[in-house]
Design a protein around this nucleic acid. Structure first.
Length: 602
DNA sequence: GCAAGGTC
């Protein structure tokens, strides 16, 4: 019998051939890598796609921005077409499937995988109408998981396919309708012939988060406040202490005067042991946040570098929302492998202990967390990656250190707090002292420097040695950092692990914002767009539009809603917003056009 | 030329 296994990417196709067969041969069909092996009496083939084969688009008249009124897109039916860039994979798939009797759809075990499985099935059926299809689902590309999945084949989940296709149609319809409307009217108002003013249910809420913070910062009015700071003598130590805030200078001065040269008592002295747990296994968004915060590498570049490292077999698949190691992952073997790396001094030590990894709470069902696969040093990475090597090494190092940290003990430190009361005034000193470094030793990014205060006893007498009033000012919030933005996107459910950094980048590409030293600074255009939308149809820029849409879509895969009903309901909602925009279009486009002085949309 | 989601 002839059997074909279709997976989402070449790396998985190769792994399947390796685990299911006893030896395999790699070959190419129309340039696409494929694998041949025997299993029992059967002849098996395995090939990987490159994600989706198909996409929705507007055809004919609907493709014309000028001839079609954008609002008409809400009534139109987008068509499913093959992506031009997947031609070779379509041909290869048909060629390999032509004589198969059974096709295993071994795409990733997530929603997109279900849709891609359907696309593969649609592609094969015309050339081989009698073939049987089975769906296999595994949530880690390990021998055990894959063997088990093939022992328990399942059926394609058509409801999930419908959910994904509905989302694709909605995103296209909504994105195209608003982008065309905004673009054409802003061009008219600005007297320009080019430039795009886009709207999207992910990109625009992201921009809205950035603008919101920028406005908070720019509208911030600093306020002066005062604190009494003093140096007190206690038990032969000197201790720097500080009062709470005073709104008025006179009150602070009076309080300072009242304690000058006075004697008081320690009313609280707590020196308590506290622990900081090591991080949970690494998922994409965390990698991006940490790279931005600690390495100064932007999310988009961090993911691109991680992909390079993955392609060179140095780390596991970098697009994942899972932060729990699968049971089947041999952690000890990985640590042993890392013992040969520049981090071997630490890995070797871990090997001597029992390995108990931290664990998070999310599992995307398709990929394990990001972990190092192979030991490498800087020269190895330079040989493999060439010109990107320096930054790639920093990412690799982060992945290795993070992995080892998840297997390490917590950091233990002493949290110190002393309150002295002089007259009626409480003054506080806080400090900390490390007791045991724990995972900080391999994960210095999170290390907190010691700032110990002397150990004193409650009840001890204190004498004020020096006292002064400090004038301070409340500080405006900083622009949103990229790491904060990623965290907010995750919280609001905007985008996926693989796309979050793209939504940020789309805003940069469109000229809506810039990232300067890790901070997101909106441009006048970006601000004008968000302020304009907030004035006319605020729901369009609401950080929660995406998650509301997603929860409606989820009803489809749960079998609780008909896909056509969801499609119509969401379109009706957005068409309502479209009408609101139309009503105020002249002033909206004028204000956006006005923001373009000196800059232009891209 | 529009979006967001896969993959490289």
């Amino acid at each position: 019998m002839g059997v074909l296994v279709v997976s989402e990417k070449d790396s998985v196709a190769a792994a399947i051939a390796r685990y299911l067969g006893r030896g395999y041969r790699r070959f190419r069909v129309v340039g696409v890598p494929a694998y041949r092996f025997r299993r029992g009496d059967d002849e098996w083939l395995s090939m990987g796609l490159r994600g989706h084969l198909m996409d929705f688009d507007f055809g004919g008249e609907l493709a014309s921005w000028r001839r079609t009124e954008p609002e008409r897109l809400f009534d139109a039916q987008p068509i499913l077409v093959y992506r031009p860039e997947s031609t070779r994979h379509v041909l290869a798939l048909r060629s390999l499937a032509k004589s198969a009797e059974l096709v295993y759809l071994a795409l990733d075990a997530d929603s997109e995988g279900e849709a891609i499985a359907y696309e593969a099935m649609m592609t094969i059926m015309p050339v081989n109408p009698r073939v049987r299809f089975l769906r296999v689902r595994f949530n880690a590309v390990t021998r055990d998981d894959i063997l088990e999945a093939f022992n328990k084949p399942q059926q394609l989940d058509l409801r999930t396919v419908e959910k994904v296709f509905t989302r694709m149609m909605l995103d296209l319809t909504i994105g195209a309708a608003f982008t065309r409307l905004l673009t054409l009217s802003v061009r008219r108002a600005a007297g320009r012939a080019n430039g795009i003013v886009s709207y999207g249910p992910c990109q625009t809420p992201v921009l809205s988060l950035v603008v919101r913070r920028a406005l908070e910062r720019e509208n911030f009015v600093p306020r002066k406040y005062y604190v009494v700071s003093a140096l007190v003598a206690v038990d032969g130590h000197r201790l720097a202490v500080r009062s709470e805030r005073f709104e008025g200078r006179e009150d602070a001065v009076a309080a300072a005067k009242s304690i000058r040269g006075s004697v008081g008592r320690v009313v609280e002295a707590s020196f308590v042991e506290a622990r900081k747990s090591p991080p949970v296994p690494l998922e994409t968004v965390e990698l991006e946040k940490r790279a931005s915060k600690w390495l100064g590498i932007r999310s988009r570049e961090a993911l691109a570098l991680a992909e390079e490292l993955y392609r060179h077999g140095l780390i596991s698949y970098p697009r994942t929302e899972t932060n729990v190691y699968p049971q089947t992952l041999d952690l000890r073997r990985l640590v042993a492998e890392l013992a040969r790396s520049p981090f071997g001094w630490y890995a070797g030590r871990l090997l001597a202990s029992r390995l108990s990894p931290t664990r998070g709470r999310s599992d995307d069902g398709a990929h394990p967390p990001i972990y190092p696969v192979r030991a490498a040093d800087l020269p190895d990475v330079v040989r493999a990656l060439g010109r990107h090597a320096r930054k790639a090494w920093k990412i690799y190092e982060l992945v290795v250190r993070h992995f080892l940290a998840t297997l390490s003990p917590p950091a233990v430190y002493e949290r110190q707090r002393v309150v002295v009361r002089v007259g009626g005034l409480d003054l506080v000193a806080e400090g900390r002292r490390t007791i045991s470094e724990g995972y900080w030793e391999i994960y210095p990014y999170e290390r907190i420097e010691d700032s110990p205060i002397p150990r004193v006893e409650a009840g001890a007498t204190v004498r004020v040695v020096e006292v002064e009033v400090e004038e301070r000012e409340t500080k405006p919030p900083d622009y949103l950092s990229e790491a904060e933005l990623l965290a907010l996107m995750k919280r609001h459910g905007i985008g996926t692990d693989a796309t979050m950094q793209e939504h940020i980048h789309t805003n940069v590409r469109r000229g809506y914002m810039n990232i300067v030293r890790g901070r997101c600074i909106p441009s006048p255009l970006g601000k004008a767009l968000i302020l304009g939308l907030n004035d006319t149809a605020p729901h369009l820029a609401d950080p929660d539009v995406r998650s509301r849409m997603e929860s409606m879509l989820a009803q489809i895969s749960r079998g609780r809603a008909d896909p056509r009903d969801v499609l119509e309901a969401v379109k009706r909602e957005f068409r309502g917003y479209y009408k609101l925009l139309l009503d105020r279009l002249p002033s909206l486009s004028k204000s956006i056009a006005g923001s373009l002085d000196g800059g232009s949309p891209r």
